[in-house]
């Protein structure tokens, strides 16, 4: 539209080329993301058990059940609580480490590498490691407590299992640390120097300059943190029960929503109901993402047009 008409055929070719390049991904999105989601949506309105070829249409029954079934409400509440605890804790811990690493100290690179190391450990490795630490009879956690006369705490059972899971999540705070550190290093040094000249304290300089300038990075962390927390599944299974069929053996205090979903699908064969659960979770995640993005409006900025990109002035700081 903006180009001269004589370039018309070239533009057409370019348009074709755009779809040649993005087509495979787009096709993959339709087949492997959109279609399964649509399939789950259709299932959620039926009483499918995965076996009978003609499931009955049950309307909104499954969704009604999601919001009335005490077990599901329980798992939703626990998931909410888990998210509300781990997201702020992980971000605070990661930010704390990043601020420490942003000081001019010796061996900074080494500290950074080693503190990030746990975040690189594959989830299965991390979960099994924590299982060894918190084992009732052979774990180091009880070994330590034993020296203070407390013995035989069953960490992997109720009511403590929740805290083991939270600790396990916190162990990967290195992710937040690395991203926050990159953000901290983007903040011009002069700003802090000017503040100091004006007589601002360290704390003031942190809360008035660092935090606002870091807010886009932190907002992003909040979104991805919430999404990750809501989907927590593999660590639960591995650290607490040795078999994948053992979903229902997960302690009550870790009865998160994904445990409920897997139990409904694979232990109870209630495909319809489980699909409704998935969709409720999906809508929930979209809603949270939208709300957080709305809150951070102007802080996170993507441009669609590459040409626009070069001239863009980067928007920093919240509104």
């Amino acid at each position: 539209m903006r180009r001269a008409p004589r370039l018309g055929s070239r533009r057409m070719r370019r348009a074709g080329a755009f779809y040649v390049f993005t087509g495979p991904w787009l096709l993959g999105f339709l087949i492997l993301t959109a279609y399964p989601l649509g399939y789950a949506l259709w299932l959620s309105f039926t009483n499918s058990d995965g076996l009978s070829s003609h499931p009955r249409f049950v309307g909104l029954d499954n969704y009604r059940e999601v919001f009335t079934d005490p077990d599901t409400l329980d798992s939703l509440a626990r998931t909410g609580l888990f998210t509300a605890i781990t997201v702020p804790l992980t971000i605070t811990a990661g930010l704390f480490l990043a601020v420490l690493l942003n000081q001019p100290i010796r061996a900074r690179g080494l500290f950074r590498t080693l503190l990030y190391l746990p975040a690189v450990v594959p989830p299965v490795g991390a979960a099994l490691t924590f299982k060894l630490i918190f084992d009732r009879d052979s774990g180091s956690a009880n070994g330590l407590l034993d020296m203070f006369g407390v013995n035989g705490v069953a960490w992997l059972a109720d009511p403590y299992a929740r805290w083991v899971l939270i600790t396990l999540t916190l162990w990967a705070a290195g992710n937040v640390m690395i991203i926050s550190l990159a953000g901290l290093q983007d903040i011009p040094r002069e700003l802090h120097e000017a503040a100091r000249v004006d007589g601002a304290s360290q704390w003031q300089s942190f809360t008035r300059i660092t935090l606002p300038l870091l807010s886009p990075v932190l907002f992003f962390q909040v979104v991805t943190g919430i999404i990750a927390a809501l989907q927590t599944f593999a660590p639960l299974l591995i650290s607490l029960d040795p078999t994948p069929q053992g979903v229902s053996a997960v302690p009550r205090s870790n009865n998160l929503i994904m445990i409920n979903v897997f139990t409904q699908y694979f232990a109870n064969s209630r495909y319809g109901y489980a699909s409704a659960l998935l969709w409720v979770l999906f809508v929930f995640i979209i809603a949270i993402t939208l709300v957080v993005f709305r809150l951070s409006k102007g802080a996170v900025f993507y441009s669609v047009d590459p040409e626009q990109e070069k001239t863009r002035s980067r928007t920093i700081g919240g509104s």
Partner: peptide, 10 residues
Amino acid sequence: MMPQIITLIP
């Protein structure tokens, strides 16, 4: 931002 585990079971 798509939660992968949601599409995995379907």
